[in-house]
């Protein structure tokens, strides 16, 4: 299949990209990894008239950790995360996701920020972004602004990035040593969108009670959801089987999936709870802790 015609521009800086987007309006798109956009263009479901390629923006290709934060630029690929020792050691959730997002070849091209901006309701990264309480820096012609995950995710395929804007950096808080995380995804095969998935990040106090919890679920609603009620249940508590069941139930309760080839709505609703439970259990295991009876 062959995309419809478009004009092609290369941007060498965020300023240049934003200016090109401003110039060409609603039918212009940023081309980062292109792993969602190009297939959509091949099907002619997407027919942008202008593409602004940012792949040669060398300055956007960075992963840096400082002052308790991880900063990632717009051209960082999923594979950069997958193969990064820093990520594997310090960012368990991100590491888990970067192993299962798309397929290994697509990961060499797809970008983290691109995935977040695409905001597919079944995408992996938005759920992780919620659980990790990450932020996004958005640039427009007047400057930059920071939005947190909950504000960033607006609607299916729609984020806080407005026309003429570009997401330039995502910031992920560095988890403390007492933090365990896990990404639990059911997919029909490698490369598939999630049937349902859950991102869990738990920070424990010395006594084993939960200091902070982050839970994001995906593919079970029109956007990735934060299981806020579940997080609240966990805070300050020792993690018991019954508590896990209650948190899982919260996830299932708020899930509002549609039936499709990946499964019935009832199944997705139920199984996302199971995934949240498994995510909590694995997070604890990774901290060398067990679920209390």
């Amino acid at each position: 299949m062959f995309p419809a015609s478009f004009d092609f521009y290369r941007a060498h800086s965020a300023e240049e990209a934003v200016s090109l987007l401003g110039e060409h309006g609603a039918d212009s798109r940023i081309l980062a990894g292109g792993q969602s956009l190009i297939p959509a263009m091949r099907y002619r479901l997407a027919q942008p008239t202008v593409l602004v390629d940012i792949n040669q923006m060398q300055a956007a290709n960075y992963i840096t950790e400082e002052n308790g934060e991880l900063r990632i630029g717009a051209t960082v690929r999923d594979s950069d995360l997958e193969f990064s020792d820093l990520i594997r050691t310090n960012y368990q959730l991100m590491s888990d996701v970067s192993d299962v997002v798309a397929d290994p070849i697509v990961r060499f091209r797809g970008t983290l920020i691109g995935s977040l901006c695409h905001n597919d309701p079944s995408g992996d990264w938005p759920a992780a972004m919620l659980a990790a309480r990450a932020k996004m820096i958005i640039q427009n012609k007047d400057g930059k602004r920071v939005v947190n995950a909950d504000e960033f995710i607006v609607d299916s395929f729609t984020t806080a990035v407005e026309e003429g804007e570009m997401a330039v950096e995502t910031i992920w808080p560095t988890p403390s040593k007492n933090t365990g995380a896990s990404y639990q995804k059911i997919e029909r095969k490698v490369g598939d969108y999630a049937t349902a998935a859950a991102a869990v990040q738990l920070e424990l106090n010395e006594d084993g009670t939960v200091k902070e919890a982050g839970i994001g679920i995906t593919a079970v609603s029109y956007v990735a959801l934060r299981v806020a009620e579940g997080e609240a249940l966990l805070r300050g508590q020792k993690v018991t089987r019954n508590l896990i069941k209650a948190v899982a139930a919260e996830a299932s309760k708020m899930a509002d999936p549609i039936a499709d080839g990946r499964g019935s709505a009832e199944y997705k609703k139920e199984v996302v709870g199971v995934l949240v439970a498994k995510g909590i259990m694995q997070s604890l295991e990774r901290l060398g802790r067990k679920v209390e009876a």
């Binding site: 292109g34 792993q35 390629d53 091209r109």
Partner: peptide, 27 residues
Amino acid sequence: DSSSCGVCTVVLDGKIPVKSCTMFAVQ
């Protein structure tokens, strides 16, 4: 048509595998 099969895979810069159906030649 959907970047699924990978029979178009080539290598960029000595070590980056890409599906050459999901990249424009200009890139």
